[in-house]
Design a protein around this nucleic acid. Structure first.
Lengths: 198, 198, 198, 198
DNA sequence: GATTAACCGAGACGGTACGTCACGTCTTTAA
DNA sequence: TTAAAGACGTGACGTACCGTCTCGGTTAATC
């Protein structure tokens, strides 16, 4: 979910009236959100605190985002450092490298309650549900890219079920991380990749 | 997490003094919780409302459970109808049948915010985290049973990695359900089972 | 308080530069204020609503009046229908007639919170305090006129304390109206007039 | 308006259940209100600040009073030092002395916006209107007592209209104080008393 | 005719206070 | 001692206004 009222339509002159939105407020708010997420987590991030930190009125936040959660999701989208696409030469090694990075990325810490929070919030907000879905499917793109590259190279059969393998590789990671709390280490992800490419 | 202070040790007369705990309060509370979960979801389940519904003081609830979430988890454990263990003759058909039932069980509805809520809450409460892990690993037992039965029957090789296959079958279900919002239907679970048993 | 910057001095060309004030904006604002006062009272009259109703920007209002209350007071001054000066032949009958009209004028209704609001606001704004004083003393002029006419006619002694009698007749009306909530009817005002002229 | 739910009915054992209201909270709240009224006036008295000052949750205040204004009125009733009943020997001197004290009491200062605030608020709240009426009529009792004492002593005729004279003496004070802003000094109140007793 | 300065409607801005709600604890009387 | 009832302190919520500011765009008097 992007900030509300983004004049997405190209070519429309937007016929702006009234004082325009402060251009730098979005950034200030997103930056403050990112700061607070890592300092106090989602649980400690109140809208009052956020507004104060961003040097902004609460109304300015609500004018731009529908909810705290829409804002947080946008913060993840815009501010979080992306996991780079590895290029080790083979699908197997690319997936090994990528999953190593994923493990690093989901280290437990102050911000590790963010994704669970968004998941719960999306139960009550269809628009957020759609945005979160879109965001998380986007994060599959690296895995998909690696697999497609493998098919092009002839390393994988042309009829490889990319969707399924993507799920099979990524899902157990989140399943263990969020649900069963089982160990997620390199040994596990490597075993998983071997199984998926078997 | 079981109710606090359960006189687990048999034989100890407990040397009770004062008014004894109401024997039926636990059940009344669990039943009211289950009712409210399906009526208003976790989001609408406040402790005040719950106490009123159960005809119980709030302190009585907190005397028996550490938190709202511990209670909810116990409610799931005690009150929710278990998914029966199928016995179709082959591992493949057992897993097909089981996953069909799982799909039914996680139909969207009033109570479908329960698991996400517990997942988030477990970020802030180590004891809950442990209890939830235990509960969810418990729910893997049917899948494991089916696989072990297959090994005994000689249907699966003796060195089958039961842990991994369990994750590979169950994880994508929750991953799609909670994270990407992708379709989860019989076609998908069947494809998944085929892949896992390939 | 009149609109700010009124070029009161006649003959001074004021050497205006720039676009002149919209001539009809004052009226539009005053009219909208009067409308809203009777529709939603002072309490419901927000500056945003008022600007919208008058088809005017908020800044245009603040350019012309110092505050919401200065505007409201001006609205009363300019727009409210004045109570006519009676001429019944005697001081007694004139006062009877006038007080009857006053009773009518202060009927309870949507706009009856206006005066109390101005009274409170004038606690925080010396200029408003002065303007309100001036306005309310102005409204004594009819009573004063009636009394002075009586003195000229020889109906009242020449040393009549007009100030005091004015207060004695008008004050109990407002005192009961605003403070004690006691009944204010013709019987009361007549008794009052009789006492004052005794 | 007294604190909500006061078990006014005598003889009813009240059949109290649950934790009783903190006995000292009322006092703490009233005292904090009085403090803040004199420090920052009604305008600066926010419920958050008040709760903090009283060492009490906001909900505790709202549990006991319907509104900020009901609380303020109660504060006046309970905490404000009453004007003593003078006993100078004659009605005239008693009234002189009393009005002198009234003038002192309504000195301008931090708390002088309190009465105007309550008057406005009572436009929007019938219960407050009734309470304020009752409070202000109560404050007439000293004047009435002085007049009745005069009748008993034979100093005033038995058919003296006590209601009217009370209004005639007190009303101009508030009228000038709140409305016209005219001078209210000893000279004026003495002239007023002389006129009323004429 | 070009420039300039004050105006215009619209609406975003930083603040502040509101009254409600839920949390988990505490305090009463009764059993 | 536990029970039901319900008050407690805390703190976040999302809304509504305030009075100011900032746009793009008029509209005159001045140059």
């Amino acid at each position: 979910m992007s900030p509300i009222d983004t004049p997405a339509a190209v070519g429309r002159p937007a016929a702006k009236r009234g004082r325009p939105r402060r251009a730098d407020a979005d950034d200030a708010i997103l930056a403050a959100t990112l700061e607070l997420l890592s300092e106090v987590g989602v649980a400690g991030l109140s809208m009052d605190l956020l507004a104060q930190r961003a040097g902004v009125g609460k109304a300015t936040i609500y004018r731009r985002w529908d909810s705290k959660e829409a804002l947080i999701l946008d913060t993840l989208r815009m501010m979080s450092t992306p996991i780079p696409v590895p290029d080790e030469g083979t699908v197997r090694d690319d997936l090994f490298a990528y999953m190593d990075a994923v493990i690093q990325h989901f280290r437990p810490g102050r911000g590790s309650d963010t994704l669970p929070h968004l998941i719960e919030a999306s139960c009550y907000d269809d628009q957020l549900r759609a945005s979160l879905d879109h965001y998380l499917r986007d994060r599959q793109s690296t895995t998909r890219l690696i697999l497609h590259r493998g098919i092009e190279r002839g390393e994988l059969p042309v009829d490889t079920d990319v969707d399924l393998i993507t799920d099979v590789i990524l899902a157990p990671f989140f399943y263990r991380h969020l649900l069963t709390g089982a160990t997620v280490d390199r040994e596990f992800t490597h075993r998983l990749v071997e199984f998926a490419l078997r």
